[in-house]
């Protein structure tokens, strides 16, 4: 399949966005209490597709919301009646603007587990019906380390349409998937098809962008080293200042743990699927009262090992896309980058 690249100027991009917002159900970063959440918008003025990196929450909630209904039940005289919940608000056809590359990669990571042995149909439907349009990350923020983690500038197929800032001042809109190709074709009003140089532009722009990273690391090496580190004494003192909340997992675009809970009202109720986190002390609490991870360092070890060892072994990708959201949101700014590096490097000592 041939993927087309279109070019336009900044004003053209604005009108492209405006046209999309008026024609489709569009989600974009909207400022709320000083940070940006992906929310349904009806005008470009109310959102900011180029929202600042450290202040933007991930798109994960559009596919895997903090809580979602999975089914309903009702006690009747004949027994229990089960039914599907109707009207999933996230299932319709929609477009998401302003998706950062790490976020979109996070969805690919989620795909692996949610379409694995059991296919989460709600999730799959939300994914299928969504067009992701990227934003232009021009400069890394303090906590970004996405280029270190399975970042392939040639491939870039995590989103459907890539918005690229050319060094020549032009803006390139590039279809990255088939879905994106059709979408761009339908909405190409006012865009011109770019010549072959766009690919080159893109690479150059990437080089410049990659140079702006403070955090860099060779993760293939880390994966290898982490493998034997389960009993590392380093785990025991690293997260001493962690307060054991759930924040790092809830804001992470790749964390996918959930809990199931029933909300009961008289004879009927709804079953919900909500976020859960392995840093929560109750995460592994068993019915008999035993808790294999009663202390902080064991929980943190699970977090680090799941991200860089177990997931890698099972799906051949890291359960981390290097977005730095966990570090920024953590009450005490614990950096997963730092932790993992310390654990990995401790082996050489």
């Amino acid at each position: 399949m041939n993927l087309t690249t279109y070019s336009t100027d900044p004003a053209g991009l604005q009108s492209f966005y405006e046209a999309i917002i008026s024609a489709h159900d569009t989600y974009a970063p909207v400022e709320k209490f000083g940070k940006y959440d992906f929310i349904k918008v009806d005008a470009l003025s109310s959102c900011n597709p180029d929202s600042p990196i450290p202040k933007t929450m991930s798109v994960k909630p559009l596919f895997f919301p903090k809580s979602a209904r999975v089914m309903k039940y009702k006690a009747t005289s004949e027994g229990t009646e089960l039914s599907d919940t109707e009207g999933d608000p996230l299932a319709g056809k929609r477009v998401v603007l302003g998706v950062k590359h790490c976020d979109a990669r996070g969805l690919q990571v989620l795909d692996a587990v949610y379409k694995w042995d059991y296919v989460d149909t709600d999730y799959e439907k939300r994914r299928e019906n969504t067009i992701l349009i990227s934003t232009r990350c021009n400069e890394a923020s303090t906590h970004c380390f996405c280029t270190s983690l399975d970042y392939d500038v040639e491939k870039l197929d995590a989103f459907d349409v890539a918005v690229i800032n050319g060094l020549d001042g032009k803006i390139y809109l590039q279809a990255r998937t088939e879905k994106g190709e059709f979408f761009l074709k339908e909405n190409a009003n006012g865009l011109t098809v770019a010549n072959g140089s766009a690919q080159e532009e893109m690479k150059q722009q990437f080089e410049k962008f990659a140079g702006s990273f403070r955090l860099k690391m060779d993760y293939s090496e880390i994966n290898e080293k982490m493998k034997g580190r389960f009993d590392s004494a380093v785990f025991e003192d690293i997260p001493a200042n962690c307060v054991s909340c759930n924040t790092c997992a809830f804001v992470c675009p790749t964390c996918h743990c959930f809990k199931i809970s029933d909300e009961k009202l008289k004879d009927e109720g709804v079953r919900y699927k909500s976020y859960d986190s392995c840093n929560n002390v109750y995460f592994t609490l068993m019915a008999g009262g035993h808790n294999p991870r009663p202390v902080k360092y064991r929980r943190w070890r699970q977090r680090a090992m799941h991200k860089f060892v177990y997931y890698k072994e099972r799906f051949d990708m890291n359960l981390c896309v290097g977005c730095g959201k966990c570090t920024i949101s953590c009450p005490v700014n614990i950096s997963i980058f730092e932790v993992v590096n310390r654990v990995a490097s401790s082996m050489q000592e």
């Binding site: 209490f33 903090k66 909340c245 759930n246 924040t247 809830f250 976020y275």
Partner: peptide, 16 residues
Amino acid sequence: EEVFESCIRCNACRHS
């Protein structure tokens, strides 16, 4: 309503 809607129930507030 907007405040409570934006809460993701991470409990960072209680733990901090």
